[in-house]
Design a protein around this nucleic acid. Structure first.
Lengths: 243, 243
DNA sequence: AAGTGGTCTAGACCACGTT
DNA sequence: ACGTGGTCTAGACCACTTT
């Protein structure tokens, strides 16, 4: 739809097809604006997209440089949702609910979800399978408005995210993630079929609505070696920090 | 220097000071352009910066919404460099080199660093300390041009990154990171003073120059519980993917 | 000196969401 | 119907780098 996005895709495609080689130089923005018959600003917007992806690096005075392979450009949803990620890779996601109960919000819940002093949260423990084997246990706590919807989802629904978007018009637009490592606890070991104390990748996540309201927070634990996380960052765009 | 950046900072500051409350609504872009006496496009660029940070969320028809607390906006360097991160937090970074040797590039080196079939790499093993205790072991492999500089660095230099920038004019402009969990091996256990098999956060990293040339790649292993990684993503800007 | 990217102007039109 | 953000135009000037 947007012209600048089409141009970005066109340039990305030209790089993929080898028309522009790695390390070679793109035409100047003014030349490109004539070639595509758009205003220079539109070209800048297009190239800006590719710069953020790390495909291009710009230099003044000299000419801008083609840097690397274009990335598949993973979407936000693909990352946030286990099922959508798996499907996009041609793997088979599955999952079942171990428990789903309403609890009074703990102080931690109230902080993460910005809840008033008296509030309930819907707590779900799920085990996620990839191609038939358990790789992750997920402990999620939903704020009441979302929990009321989640409660109605059948326990073997492959994608909670997709269900919420389709039937309750609840979508996530931003998330904050924290990663660390931890030893498997007793319940982890039982659910994931690993030994106690074996290494797990821990992923804490808080997901927000478009309005910035925290909708859920979750602690997921992955069996080491099954899955890993990839992040790009650059001088232009950095979404990472240590804590 | 750039007007749009000043405006972004001004709005960020206004949010921090509570002038705009969380969940409240910003003036329209046209109003802001009058207030700051700039063209509308400049305002868009400024607000775009805040949207990517997740501080603002925009909606059409209604008015755009102030979403959350402004983040400290960690810089790329702060994340890439252990020493710079630690210093910025008022903690004491230290490190010493366990070994530093030239080796023939392995097939893996050649792939990660895009080297020709015959090439050397400079391999360094370092232990990093935070406030006096060992928390990370780092195994880095530099391409020869960088290795030649690294070789001259004294073994207790706190920040290799800062040294390279200052004396050899070598700067990193982009990096790709991969995170997973793994058990401590024999050497890890000895260097980090933990038991074999205890969980470590594994961080593989490839760093690139402005021109997209891979300069080094590294596998760092952190003692679980000492440090964790935080990432933001959103529908607008997503730098994460599973692998 | 010439060319480039980075920034900015002062508009325009459209699609969308709310009223 | 109206106001909003999203996109785009057709320029301009400056800072920087290389020639």
């Amino acid at each position: 739809m947007a012209r600048y996005h089409d141009i970005a895709e066109a340039v990305r495609g030209a790089i993929t097809r080898g028309f522009y080689e790695r390390g070679s130089q793109l035409p100047s923005e003014r030349e490109l604006s004539e070639e595509f018959d758009v205003a220079p600003g539109t070209i800048r917007q297009a190239l800006g997209e590719l710069e953020t992806e790390g495909v291009l690096a710009s230099r003044r005075g000299s000419r801008r440089t083609v840097v690397g392979e274009p990335r598949p450009a993973a979407t936000f949803e693909e990352f946030r949702s286990f099922a959508q990620w798996a499907s996009s890779r041609g793997r088979v996601p599955a999952g079942h609910v171990i428990s789903g109960v309403w609890q009074d919000a703990s102080p931690l819940d109230r902080e993460e979800l910005r809840l008033p002093t008296a509030a309930r949260v819907f707590c779900v423990v799920r085990v996620r399978l990839l191609d038939g084997s358990a790789i992750m246990v997920e402990r999620t706590r939903y704020r009441d408005s979302v929990g009321a919807e989640v409660e109605q989802i059948s326990s073997d629904c492959p994608s909670v995210t997709a269900w919420l978007a389709a039937t309750a018009n609840i979508t996530f637009s931003r998330a904050e993630h924290q990663f660390s490592a931890c030893p498997a606890g007793a319940e982890d070991a039982r659910l994931l079929n690993v030994r106690r104390g074996s290494p797990l990748l821990m992923h804490k996540r808080v997901s927000f609505s478009r309005d910035g309201l925290p909708l859920e927070w979750s602690v997921d634990r992955y069996v080491a070696g099954t899955i890993s996380l990839v992040v790009d960052n650059s001088l232009n765009a950095n979404a990472l920090r240590w804590a």
